[in-house]
């Protein structure tokens, strides 16, 4: 797997920071409530590694379900990615129900709540992608969001084991709630190469393979 320099990772963090800020604004406008998204931390990991990580960091243990909102994007400039937003099911339900002014404690997510969550994910992911597309000066078409609820172990079963995952961890704070989630970009190897080239170009970093200017 290709590794990335510290500079490249910093650049990526900055790119996401800008795009997530957009997302928070859109989201706040819809729910008429202050939403804060924390500065993301960026990592590039394998599917296996991420699954292990998700299992071990779940506060409710490995049996706790995660909500996954998935959209597929095709960039005109040649790369494609699955953008995933992950939240612990319990926490995301709490947020949705709070927004709907509902205190019912049904254990599982209902159809309408799932729809609402799809929209929230859609706003965040679209915002991210639109900022990235703007930054890269490319066009990316996106599919409709799909919501699924699964345990960490089976969460990424439908993705190829060879895919590389770009993980942006974000914290979401609204009123009394703190919710920590992940934005994942799952790309095949050519896509991530392409993606990083764009990042390097954007931040005027030395291109991969070139020597670092002294």
């Amino acid at each position: 797997m290709r590794t990335f320099s510290e500079l490249e990772m910093d650049a990526l963090t900055e790119a996401f920071n800008l795009s997530l800020g957009e997302a928070a604004n859109t989201f706040s406008a819809i729910v008429r409530e202050e939403i804060e998204l924390s500065v993301p931390t960026i990592e590039i990991v394998s599917r296996e590694e991420l699954t292990l990580r998700l299992e071990s960091t779940q506060p409710g243990g490995a049996a706790e379900r995660l909500c996954r909102i998935n959209q597929h994007f095709d960039a005109a400039s040649g790369f494609q990615t699955d953008a995933l937003l992950l939240f612990p099911e319990h926490g995301s339900l709490e947020i949705v129900r709070r927004m709907l002014g509902d205190d019912t404690s049904i254990e599982h997510i209902t159809e309408l709540e799932q729809d609402a969550l799809a929209e929230i994910g859609n706003i965040i992911i679209n915002s991210c992608m639109s900022s990235l597309a703007n930054l890269f000066g490319t066009e990316m078409s996106g599919s409709l969001p799909r919501v699924q609820s699964r345990t960490a172990r089976t969460l990424l079963d439908d993705k190829a084991a060879t895919d590389v995952i770009l993980v942006a961890r974000i914290g979401m704070t609204m009123a009394a709630h703190n919710l920590s989630g992940f934005v994942l970009f799952i790309m095949d190897v050519p896509s991530i190469e392409h993606f990083m080239d764009q990042v390097s170009r954007l931040f005027r970093l030395p291109q991969h393979g070139e020597s670092q200017p002294s």
Binding site: A118, E119, I120
Partner: peptide, 17 residues
């Protein structure tokens, strides 16, 4: 507008709209 200009898909849920 976003769909026409950028190719984004979106969902408007009953809960929020």
């Amino acid at each position: 507008r976003e769909a026409l200009d950028f190719g984004w898909s979106a969902r408007l849920s009953h809960a929020l709209h």
